[in-house]
Design a protein around this nucleic acid. Structure first.
Lengths: 224, 224
DNA sequence: GCAAAAGTGTTATATCTACACCCATGC
DNA sequence: GCATGGGTGTAGATATAACACTTTTGC
């Protein structure tokens, strides 16, 4: 068995973590997580959390390590690979391949000082080609909302149908018809009734949960 | 600007090239291209065409190089990245990341001796994790047929609607209704009439061409 | 004239879209 | 009792799915 040529590349993972901003009532607006770069290149700019992949570590382990390490995020509820960015000049220090991931997670109350959440529709200037990676993440998420149960990644275990609808509206950026939305998610069996109600200064709302807590691709589509 | 840590990884591209077998009449059955491995590991087995990425080369250039180099394929009509496979043990010689691509191309009359086309539904045992990569390619292609014009990658510049339908049927593995299929692709404007007819021992058929020769995601769906 | 594929419309069914009011609660 | 969000049904329009025969050519 002939040996392999010498290793020539660095491989990193970069993660777009999307969560919902809890300010205000209902499901908030979608935000994504960045870290401030302490050093050149792009010192002071914001960048996606990322790390070089260690020799014996899988890509997913590297993602979970960086999310655990740094900003104090819980394990993401959903994680999927997006794409690999490999232009020879994407890092001015030398060639680094970036395998990018989309993570969906509940938003923790606090992140450490060097981390910050940004609204997806108003991102800051980002280091490297990270703006393109965030774009890819949003396109993926928006697409998958209609034909999968991927929204489970953004919601707690139980939630009301209005909260679910608010997630769709926040991510897609436009309103949906309440009756049609409810009819469809119930008919598709994406969610099932859970015990209990959400109470507030108004009529209590029935709680639901996702039937599956991993990605399920639907046969039919939720009209968006 | 602090230097990067030493390079620790090898990065390869592996390509699933899908074409249509021309034996018989109409559009043939989908086949994919493999090369026979001359050396261990997996000596004598079939593997996807692939190559290590060179230091100054983009991922796509590496793909085009390996397709040009080897089996005498024309430039693919469609090329898209699939996913990156990075398990630490996927190559017994040492760690190699594989960035996989889906290529669609017309099938050349001849490929060199060490290359071979296989029907997608009856692949041989494949080296490494290449069976999983072929799976991903097929799932991607099947999905995209219904909501994009990706079939342009499998067809010549002009073709009849029956040939287009045969491509769909061959890739999806089930028959479609002729009248409904024609109505839909014409209504969506995916194809437009071209000059000329295809003649044979029967009534001549109008030729069509794709309106766009790059990937277009459709608003509506071709029912499949 | 016969075999082979091209081409073409309609109807019943299902789905989608748009839309407005009453209900249950907290205060 | 009032403000707030929760919850529900229908009708018209649109899209889908199923279906068979005539046309044009080569031989």
């Amino acid at each position: 068995m002939s040996p392999l040529p010498a290793a020539e590349h660095r491989v990193a993972v970069d993660v777009v973590t999307i969560a919902l901003d809890e300010t205000g009532s209902g499901a908030g607006s979608p935000v994504f997580l960045t870290l401030r770069r302490p050093r050149d290149p792009f010192a002071g700019d914001w960048a996606l959390p990322g790390t070089l992949v260690r020799p014996d570590e899988s890509l997913e382990s590297a993602v979970l390590r960086i999310l655990g390490d740094g900003p104090g995020l819980p394990r993401p509820r959903h994680l999927e690979q997006l794409a690999t960015f490999g232009g020879p000049r994407r890092d001015p220090r030398g060639r680094v391949f970036s395998v990018s991931y989309l993570a969906l997670a509940p938003r923790p109350a606090e992140v450490r000082r060097t981390a910050r959440w940004w609204p997806v529709e108003a991102p800051p200037p980002l280091a490297f080609d990270h703006a393109a990676i965030v774009d890819a993440a949003l396109r993926r998420l928006r697409g998958k909302l209609s034909y999968s149960n991927v929204a489970y990644g953004l919601l707690p275990d139980t939630f009301t149908l209005s909260e679910l609808q608010a997630v769709y509206e926040a991510v897609l950026g436009h309103p949906l018809d309440k009756r049609n939305f409810r009819k469809k998610v119930l008919a598709l069996g994406v969610v099932t009734e859970a015990a209990g109600q959400r109470r507030g200064p108004h009529r209590p709302a029935q709680l639901y949960r996702f039937r599956d807590t991993e990605l399920v691709v639907l046969d039919d589509v939720i009209p968006v």
